[in-house]
Simulated scan of single mutants.
Amino acid sequence: MTASMQKGTYESIQVLRGVAAILVTLFHAASHAFGSENVFRVGNAGVDIFFIISGFVMWAATARRPPTPGEFLRHRVIRVVPLYYLFTLALLVAWLVLPSAFPHMAAPTAGHVLLSLAFVPHADPAGTAFPLLAQGWTLNFEMFFYLLFALALLLPAARRLRLLAALLLALPLLGLLFPETLLRRAPALGLCNPLLVEFLGGILIARWVERGGRPGAPLGWAAIVLGAAILALAPNPAADNDWARLLLFGVPAFLIVIGALCVETSAKNFRVGPAPLLLGASSYSLYLSHTIVISAAGKVLGGANPLLAATVATTVAVLAAIAVYFAVEKPLLKLLRGSRDPLPRVQVAPL
């Protein structure tokens, strides 16, 4: 076992968090610079990697010493909510002070702001199902998954996996029954989405590792290469087809995550170095802040070459996220967690 595994951590998961956040950042930077989401739509697969990691981490962090549902939810709220609120409210204040700087942003209403802060999917003033901080749509899924996971913690360990599997498979199938007209009237029903299966994929990986699954590094690298090849070569799914996304993004993301864990668990001295670990640690700050930074960088760069503009914007976003991590996120978590931390440090917390 690696030294990090003996302490209950997985460096490969931390690195993949950084990779996932950079993929999403590249997607938005390229979309902004080239004026099209199709230039690097595969960057959206970073979200799918995040969802699988989240399922893995939640199971791994609670398997040996399950917290109460209340303890679990308190821990997740501390991890997710403060920084999300900070960037959401910062965006709101920026719009109030200088609305001309946000020409594509519809005037936020009080209801839109409150529902965004409550992680409730809803139609924004422009009629789309995005919260005020647009990338927060993934956090709506994360918080819904946490609620389902907290419910499962009420059960004995032997039945917990069965309940989660039943819920995370049944809800997407239920979603197939909702007509588009109903989903437009009640966007919260959109949580019955096939992307929930990705959380289950992460849980199954954690369960497999827990039971001693060790196929070795060669198969691990093969899974990583196959997953990356599918992402690179397969057609990108349409933005509104989440079943296709589950196949074309979710399956390769699953292969990449399980492959990385196979590589790590087969090595006695697995080390990745401080820089990749730092990118992983600052991935949440990067995920929340990157669209604001990219927008600001776009205004400064003006009519620069799109490839150069996307590269510069991504680099600046990463550097800004590292600064936010050290100056805001890390001290804020230390302050809020204090000495009461009900979950063992099995993993660094996911997005």
Rank of each mutant, 00 (worst) to 15 (best):
M1Y: 14
Q6S: 15
G8Q: 11
E11W: 06
S12W: 14
Q14T: 11
V15K: 07
R17K: 09
R17C: 04
A20F: 06
L23S: 07
V24M: 14
V24R: 06
S31M: 13
H32N: 12
E37L: 06
E37N: 10
N38Q: 15
V39C: 11
F40S: 07
G43S: 03
I52Q: 08
G55V: 01
F56D: 11
W59G: 06
W59C: 10
A63V: 15
A63N: 12
R64S: 15
P66I: 00
T68C: 02
P69F: 00
P69D: 02
E71I: 01
R74L: 06
R76C: 01
V77I: 10
R79M: 07
V80L: 12
Y84K: 15
Y85T: 04
F87S: 05
T88Q: 06
A90C: 13
W95F: 11
W95P: 03
L98M: 14
P103R: 08
M105F: 14
T109E: 04
G111V: 08
L114N: 12
L114M: 10
A118M: 14
F119P: 00
F119C: 00
P121F: 01
P121G: 00
H122K: 05
F130V: 08
A134S: 14
Q135H: 06
F141W: 03
F141Y: 09
M143C: 03
F144G: 02
F145R: 02
L147W: 00
F149V: 02
A152G: 01
A152L: 00
A152M: 01
L153D: 00
L153P: 02
A158C: 10
A158P: 04
R162W: 15
L163A: 02
L164H: 00
L167F: 07
L168D: 00
L169T: 13
L174R: 03
L174N: 03
L176P: 03
L176T: 07
F178K: 08
L183G: 03
L183I: 05
R184D: 10
A188G: 12
L191D: 11
L191G: 04
P194Q: 06
V197L: 08
V197A: 05
V197C: 05
V197K: 01
L200Q: 08
I203Q: 04
L219W: 09
A223G: 04
L233D: 00
A234Y: 04
L248M: 09
V251L: 06
P252M: 02
F254V: 13
I256D: 00
I256M: 02
V257G: 08
A260M: 15
L261I: 05
V263K: 06
E264T: 13
F270T: 11
R271D: 15
R271N: 15
P274D: 14
P276E: 13
L279C: 13
S282P: 11
S282L: 15
H290N: 09
I292A: 09
I294S: 03
A296T: 12
G298P: 02
V300H: 09
V300Q: 14
L301H: 14
L308N: 10
V318K: 04
L319G: 13
A320E: 08
A320N: 04
V324E: 07
V324C: 08
Y325E: 11
E329R: 09
L333D: 04
L333I: 05
L335R: 11
R337N: 13
S339D: 05
R340K: 14
D341Q: 08
P342D: 05
L343T: 04
P344Y: 12
R345E: 11
V346H: 12
V348R: 14
P350M: 03
P350H: 03
L351W: 05
